[in-house]
């Protein structure tokens, strides 16, 4: 861009008036500056409006209609779609499943990855400098591995692992003499489908969050650990009193990321139980939305589900922030 050349003359302040209270000095913007702003702010905002905000508004508008999705005609039906959702037992089941995912998946993932991160950074020998376990870099690589595999592949691999007749899991279990796992459908029983699904999601993410927490823990000044150790703190106490408070913001970010993932979870569900699992026990809102739109041809209702999902996601984020605020206390 030839226009983006700073021109110094325009930065000179205009002559000041005689008034004692000078107005804040206002620089007249040069052409170059305007172009610069347009490109760095205007262009992204235009794209954002077109591809993010506008679909957002559109989805909301469609959620008020009876649009079937395959014609350009529809009627406005007010809030009828939302009312229908509140009485739709399958959708409500999906909402409950999503909330369960949003409660369990982030919590377990963060606890596990934080524990692993602690082990490889400060959990090592208690003599000498604070350090991680021996060969910690190997553990780090191994546990990061699942994250390098695309979600859909993770789902497909595990659905084969849990295959009742020829899967590795049942093969191992029956191999060590547990005959009741002969042809046991891990993903087909109400009692196990959801836990197994959660396990797969958590398996895929622990490594990534471990690396995230390692970075956060490495940022903590080691004097703090040294001081704590001089004061006689053990590993658990150091984790609770030093590590946790220092990586709090990272945990919050991780919680929100994982929560949003759990509220979506579409890819994992599509690979593990595309039809919603036994008795809909792993059906998620995104799956129900997809079915309603493309299989039942009710795009209006599906849009209402989308709006509901967005509202749930925002509420989730707000709840996490509020809890973090409240537990942090106001004393600092």
């Amino acid at each position: 861009m030839t226009a983006v050349v700073p021109s110094m003359t325009d930065v000179v302040a205009p002559p000041s008036g005689s008034s004692r209270f000078k107005r804040p000095r206002r620089r007249r913007m040069s052409r170059a500056r305007i172009v610069f702003i347009l490109i760095t702010l205007g262009l992204p905002f235009a794209f954002y409006s077109l591809f993010v905000l506008w679909p957002f508004v559109q989805a909301f508008i469609y959620s008020l209609t009876n649009w079937g999705g395959f014609s350009d005609t529809f009627e406005f039906v007010g809030l009828a779609n939302y009312k229908a959702l509140l009485h739709d037992d399958i959708f409500l089941k999906a909402v409950r499943n999503n909330l369960l995912l949003a409660l369990v998946v982030p919590f377990v993932t963060i606890v596990l990855s934080l524990a692993l991160a602690t082990m490889v950074t400060v959990g090592g020998s208690s003599t000498g400098a604070v350090r991680g376990l021996d060969r910690s870099s190997l553990y780090r690589i191994v546990s990061f591995f699942p994250y390098t595999i695309p979600a859909i592949v993770i789902g497909l691999i595990w659905s084969q692992m849990f295959d009742p007749s020829s899967g590795l899991v049942n093969g191992l279990l029956t191999g060590i003499g547990l005959d009741r796992f002969e042809s046991f459908a891990w993903l087909g029983e109400v009692s196990t489908a959801m836990p197994v699904t959660m396990f797969v999601i958590i398996w895929g993410f622990v490594g990534f969050y471990m690396v995230l927490f390692i970075a956060a823990i490495k940022g903590i000044p080691s004097e703090l650990y040294d001081a704590a150790r001089v004061d006689g703190a053990g590993r658990v106490r150091m984790t609770m009193m030093v590590t946790l408070p220092m990586v709090r913001d990272t945990i919050q970010t991780a919680y929100i990321y994982l929560g949003i993932l759990a509220l979506d979870a579409f890819v994992y569900m599509a690979a593990l139980n595309a039809s919603g699992g036994p008795q809909n026990s792993t059906l998620t809102m995104t799956q129900d939305l997809f079915n309603t739109a493309f299989k039942k041809g009710q795009f209006g209702l599906a849009s209402a589900m989308g709006v509901f999902l967005a509202a749930t996601t925002l509420t989730f984020a707000a709840v996490v922030f509020t809890i973090n605020r409240l537990t942090r206390g106001r004393d600092r």
């Binding site: 679909p55 959620s63 997809f290 739109a293 795009f299 999902l309 925002l314």
Partner: peptide, 21 residues
């Protein structure tokens, strides 16, 4: 900023349903 970011992630869920007429 983080909220806005979370909102940004919530949006794909909406746009999934909001194909243009």
């Amino acid at each position: 900023l983080q909220l806005a970011f979370a909102g940004g992630l919530a949006v794909p869920a909406l746009s999934l349903a909001g194909c243009a007429t």
